[in-house]
């Protein structure tokens, strides 16, 4: 069965018009989905931050962090996290673990200015409010300095750093299947490599997130 097998007659009267789509004599009410917070789905203020080809040195290394700054008056919803390796020379690589931890703040490294954080909605979109984003320096050996890091990771995955063994294939570390990660004010996330020495390869990562007032 691919179509409805019944219907209910209703009396049409004066008042507000309810959107329907007429197919074979039956009116199908058309609806627009909203989240449990009432915001219409598909219209969020979505942003992305990226760390590219960060040297895999001094493990464990925190290489990309997103913080909902204190007193921001917004909530951040993290929808997706990816990680992968890039190379300029061949290496004897191995599968390396990537962990995502909650944290409260990040320092050192390079700040990603709010004014250059890309938006999915508009090239000249509003500057991401209340967002603190930073990444490890592409030229340095040390990673971000994290405070308030959680004991247990929120999500984990791995990447292959060997060019002869799947190196470069992005790993989908996190996908929000209905429920994103929520970052209230003063909360954040950090992406961290495991504690094994990683040779000459690099690590990259991307975090897609939504800003909800």
């Amino acid at each position: 069965m691919s179509r409805v097998n019944s219907n209910v007659p209703t009396t049409v009267g004066a008042g507000a018009s309810v959107a329907t789509h007429l197919i074979s004599g039956n009116d199908y009410q058309t609806i627009i989905f909203a989240g449990p917070d009432g915001y219409l789905q598909g219209l969020g203020d979505m942003y992305v931050i990226t760390a590219l080809a960060i040297p895999m040195t001094t493990p464990p290394k925190d290489f990309l962090a997103l913080i909902n700054q204190p007193n921001s008056n917004v909530i951040l919803k993290v929808h997706a996290i990816n990680s992968w390796s890039e190379q300029t020379t061949g290496i004897p690589g191995t599968p390396r673990g990537i962990r995502v931890f909650r944290c409260t703040s990040a320092s050192d490294g390079d700040t990603i200015a709010n004014s250059v954080i890309p938006s999915l909605n508009n090239a000249a979109g509003p500057v991401a409010p209340g967002v603190g984003a930073s990444r490890a320096s592409a030229s340095g050996t040390t990673g971000l300095t994290i405070t308030g890091g959680a004991t247990e990771p929120l999500v984990v995955g791995a990447i292959n750093t060997e060019e002869a063994g799947g190196g470069g294939l992005p790993s989908k570390i996190f996908r929000a299947l209905g429920e994103p990660m929520l970052l209230s004010t003063g909360q954040g996330l950090t992406m961290r490599t495991d504690s094994t020495a990683l040779g000459l390869a690099s690590v990259s990562g991307t975090i897609w997130f939504e800003v909800v007032p």
Binding site: S6, V8, V12, N26, Y28, Q29, T30, I31
Partner: peptide
């Protein structure tokens, strides 16, 4: 009046069928 699309799976109830937008 107008016919509202429903599905009756056999439990005596009419389940309205909607089209998402």
């Amino acid at each position: 009046g107008q016919l509202v699309a429903t599905q009756s799976p056999g439990d005596g109830k009419e389940y309205q069928v909607i089209i998402p937008s």
